[in-house]
Amino acid sequence: MTTAPAKMTNNADAPLLAARDLRVTYSRRGGGTCVAVDGVTFEIARGETLGLVGESGCGKTSLGRALLGLIPVAGGNVTFDGQPIEQLRSTVLRKFRRRAQLIFQDAAASLNPRMRVGAIVADPLRVHGMARGKAARERVEATLAQVGLDVALINRYPHELSGGERQRVDIARALVLDPEFLVCDEPVSAVDACTRVALLDLLRSLQRAHQRSYLFITHDLAAASRMCDRVAVMQAGRIVELGATDRVLSNPQHPCTRQLRSAVPTF
């Protein structure tokens, strides 16, 4: 019933982000390695939302973090706006960190429990020296308003907020630097259904308004169908199916996709 926003991506444009044969491995305790991401290749165009769907443990979180250069890559490469990110150093890397942001699944863990909402959202600005004092406060207030939060919450601590409000603060922190690319790592899995719908709509409207690119990680095809232009299905570190959301949902090819598809509740 819900269909992906049908938006044509211009093929002539160079993709904003491209992963080529990306591999991420972890060394196991007591020797041996465990392959989390096993040779993954895909591109994300400007203004496009790519869904990354799979069961927990399939490597989707590792992939998201590797794209942002937060964990070391064992093989392959990631290019952002034409530049390979593993080679970025100091000032260029800082610039990349400003342009690409991460939204977490569990805002209760991703917000520093000892900082107030205002300080949390302002921290990226301070790190990049982009605004101070009154200017910073105004920008924080504008961002909070953008994600639909009452500005009065600025002096609260995360534990004083509801789950949905915390998630919005997490989104506000990611947006305050006005990034071009966002990795949303299961941003709505920890909240109840009503909040989930509201947050998905918020994320989609924020994406549309600024032509941002998303990598939307989820285990729920229904959520992906609301958000994504294309969907990649991941299993055991590999992408087993990739295609336009409508096509993947209506005509799933891989057994893993079918299984995920049939798990979505029908109503």
């Binding site: 819900t2 719908v197 979505v264 509740p265 109503f267």
Partner: peptide, 8 residues
């Protein structure tokens, strides 16, 4: 909300 998050 549940309708919005379900598929046919």
């Amino acid at each position: 909300a549940a309708r919005a998050l379900s598929l046919e």
